[in-house]
Amino acid sequence: MQEHANEPGRTSKMLTDVMEIGSRVQPFSRESRDKAARIRDARVVHSVCPYCAVGCSLNVYVKNGQVIDIEGNPDSFINHGTLCPKGSATFQYTINSSRLTKVLYRAPYSDHWETKTLDWAMGQIAQRVKKSRDETFVERLEDGREVNHTLGIASLGGATLDVEENYVIKKLFNAGLGIVSIENQARI
């Protein structure tokens, strides 16, 4: 379902909601009501703030294949279009010149990064996993109890990832490979 920004009527409702602090609606001028935003005609993609667990709804505005702005979704009962400073800055989290876009590799005892292809890295990682797993896999304890696990590989992270991602992490690592130390920020 595609939705486009700044249909008439929507803007006005949006402003009303955005100007709500507590339950009091703040006044705003005709001028601000009539102004057209640069997000006009952008495609609206529905998203959720990646920071805290309040789960504020985001509208991601896309024009010419680029994200041009990210704002709170005025229709959401959670945030009514508002966002805190972090949520409001989501744009800069995603569009940022410091972002990594290539695989970096550091060889043992090396003092620098090397740029590598994704395919190479994935192949290497799979081999490392197999090697460490094969070296450390325990089928039975000394007393004969079956445990089918490896303590030689561990994983940390998940609270900032999607539910679906968490699910496949646990499925592959635990049910497939026998890794038991699968952990995330929930303890921290």
Binding site: C52, A159, T160, D162, N166, I169, V180, N184
Partner: peptide, 18 residues
Amino acid sequence: ALRGHASIQGSTDVPTLY
């Protein structure tokens, strides 16, 4: 319970916990 990450609840429901 005010949880601190976007999907911290999800990551305990599904979960990535040992």
